[in-house]
């Protein structure tokens, strides 16, 4: 399909302002570093901004932010930490112009050590304000790992993308990420002390109760409290991370998304929503080296085409969810 067609093939009327001040929020996570989350975030931002809505990218990789670099920008002199440290009043005050029309950037905290260990109250303040940014769509780039901070940013979003590449290490991290995010979500909804304790134990891979999967966990919870078991089962049905497979080189790789979805459903009971894959593309790393944005400079590349497709699917998902649909507030 020619690029022009792809680009005009969708616009996002459903994201245009409807009097609601609340932006849609999506985030790109996935457990492992270096798998392309930041690049996807930047390029999705451009897709959506091009389609005429107001987009803010937020670099939530608190310890190692570099979203600005993938947009070809120098390090902005204002960042999320200025809001966290109350040097500025409003989160909006930290938005800088990305050079692409309609696309703003909130750079990650760079300048103070331990920003990855941002305090709970500070974090909740940031998360609440993200949902009130004056724009149509916020796209967050998450850090690697499965720390509570990363998971909470994931859970605040209306749509959470989990990205993986066809490598065993990435798959292991992704499964751990999906499971941890689900347990974290349960923890936010739980008040009973014994069950909270159980959730903490379940996070450990070798726990005494022999809980290895969300299925196991729900069985144990249902024994303790059948009503909670019901609730957890319902939450499990509702929890649907979106899966993106990056760096696809072979036909087997292309099938990986389906295989992961099936395996995850059989083993965890969590049904992923497979968004699509992104073909491996040499021009990607070349663009990164040049610090140029691929979608801008090579819109016909396999990468650019994949990103447009994924953006289209995301737009349709957003049209059909009742917002806000994040898990935290």
């Amino acid at each position: 399909m020619p690029m022009a067609e792809l680009q005009t093939a969708f616009d996002f009327p459903e994201l245009h302002r409807k009097g609601s001040r609340q932006p849609a929020v999506i985030c790109v996570g996935g457990g492992k570093g270096g798998i392309g989350k930041t690049l996807l975030t930047a390029n999705l931002g451009i897709c959506f901004a091009r389609s005429g809505i107001k987009v803010v990218l937020l670099d939530a990789d608190l310890g190692g932010s570099n979203l600005h670099t993938t947009l070809g920008m120098d390090l902005p002199d204002i960042s999320l930490s200025d809001f966290v440290q109350r040097r500025v009043e409003r989160l909006e005050d930290t938005i800088v112009d990305s050079g692409v029309e309609g696309l703003g950037l909130i750079s990650g905290a760079q300048d103070f050590l331990g920003s990855a260990n941002i305090k709970y109250t500070q974090k909740m303040r940031v998360l609440k304000r993200i949902l009130k940014i004056d724009c149509d769509l916020v796209i967050m780039d998450l850090g690697s790992g499965t720390s509570f901070n990363v998971l909470d940013f994931f859970l605040v979003a209306d749509l959470g993308l989990v990205m993986l590449v066809p490598e065993p290490t990435s798959l292991e991290n992704s499964y751990r990420f999906i499971k941890s995010a689900f347990y974290r979500l349960l923890k936010h909804r739980e008040t009973s002390r014994p069950i909270l304790k159980l959730l903490d134990d379940a996070m450990e891979s070798c726990n005494e109760m022999g809980i290895r999967t969300p299925y196991d966990l729900i069985r144990v919870v249902a024994r303790l409290d059948p009503e909670r078991g019901d609730v957890y089962r319902s939450l499990m049905l509702e929890f649907r991370p979106l899966l993106v497979v990056n760096q696809v080189r072979t036909p087997e790789d292309a099938e990986l998304g389906m295989a992961v979805r099936t395996a995850c459903r059989k083993y965890f009971g969590i049904d992923l929503d497979y968004l699509g894959s992104i073909d491996f593309d040499d021009s990607v790393w070349q663009a990164v080296r040049r610090r140029s944005v691929l979608l801008e400079h090579d819109p016909e590349s396999a990468f650019s085409r994949s990103v447009w497709k994924i953006a289209g699917t995301i737009a349709r998902r957003l049209r059909h969810i009742e917002r806000p649909s994040g898990w935290l507030f």
């Binding site: 093939a9 497709k309 289209g312």
Partner: peptide, 16 residues
């Protein structure tokens, strides 16, 4: 399903 098929199909179905 052909191994390559998913990618193609995606393009089809992604267009609104």
């Amino acid at each position: 399903a052909e191994p390559g098929a998913p990618v193609e199909g995606d393009i089809e179905t992604s267009s609104p």
